[in-house]
């Protein structure tokens, strides 16, 4: 009888010890899982923050010059704000971002060079030179921009023009469209036609005092089928919209050719900020 009771006691004790062991194991496993999940979430969040800073800086750049490239489309639309003094803007922005990074838990440095460029994954480059106020679109590989079928520029001038000289339009080639709106409606015009992409085709809008706006399509700086917009001695318009149509439908990524470095716990980035 006594032995029977002892055996029962031992079994009961074993069951209790086993239950406790299982409970402790369960509790430690749950705790470990929680720590592991928190750690994974923190690592993922670092990547999310990196994306957030890239978007933050990209959004600020878009106020200067932006590109809209709808997915699987032949069109690229560039819009540039010409009222911004880019030299002081980029210099101040670089300092601003450096100070801004002191507020965040990240080291961020941002630098640009003149001319400022938008670099597309298909080789097309949009370049704005803020020393001589020249905008150029060309193929970065140095060859001709064979994929471009049309350049269209929309200009809303704040100064009345005196004259306009048109380029020589031909039967086929690259389509050139200049949609010019003058403060004096009678002097507004739309010039459109095909030009030979292997020669420089100049449309000259003249203002008083020998000031001109030149729109050039074709051979520029040794590159066929390129585009240039040049304001000589005049700031005739605050914004410019340039639409580029291409022969092929593809998905294109765009980047600003700025040097951006972001360093923070868990992740780093060094490269160009995305533009689209």
């Amino acid at each position: 009888m006594t032995n029977e009771k002892s055996r029962r006691g031992i079994i009961l004790s074993l069951v209790v010890v086993l239950m406790f062991t299982l409970l402790i194991k369960y509790a430690t496993d749950v705790q470990a899982a929680k720590i592991s999940t928190n750690s994974a979430v923190s690592r993922l969040f670092a990547a999310e923050k990196l994306g957030y800073y890239l978007d933050d800086i990209g959004t600020d750049m878009r106020t200067v010059v932006s590109v809209n490239i709808p997915a699987n489309s032949t069109t690229m639309v560039f819009v540039e704000n010409l009222t911004i003094n880019k030299s002081s803007f980029f210099s101040n922005y670089s300092r601003f971002i450096s100070n801004y990074s002191n507020n965040t838990n990240a080291n961020i440095s941002f630098n640009t060079t003149n001319p400022f460029q938008l670099v597309m994954s298909n080789g097309i480059v949009y370049q704005t030179n803020y020393s001589n106020r020249q905008i150029k679109i060309f193929n970065s590989t140095g060859g001709s921009n064979t994929s471009v079928t049309e350049y269209r520029v929309d200009i809303r001038s704040n100064t009345t023009r005196v004259f306009v000289f048109y380029p020589t339009f031909v039967a086929s080639g690259t389509r050139m469209v200049v949609n010019y709106t003058d403060p004096f409606p009678f002097r507004s015009f739309v010039a459109s036609g095909y030009v030979n992409p292997a020669v420089g085709n100049v449309l000259d809008i003249g203002y008083t005092g020998g000031r001109d706006v030149y729109v050039v399509v074709g051979l520029i700086d040794g590159k066929n089928n390129s585009f240039m917009l040049n304001q000589s001695g005049i700031d005739a318009f605050p914004y410019v919209t340039i639409t580029v149509n291409r022969s092929s439908k593809d998905t294109v990524s765009a980047f600003y050719n700025a040097s951006l470095n972001i360093s923070m716990p868990g992740t780093n980035f060094s490269g160009m900020p995305p533009a689209n």
Partner: peptide
Amino acid sequence: VWRATTFGNRFKTAK
């Protein structure tokens, strides 16, 4: 959370 923003040539920080 912080965000940098621009208004033309003016820079702002949003918190």
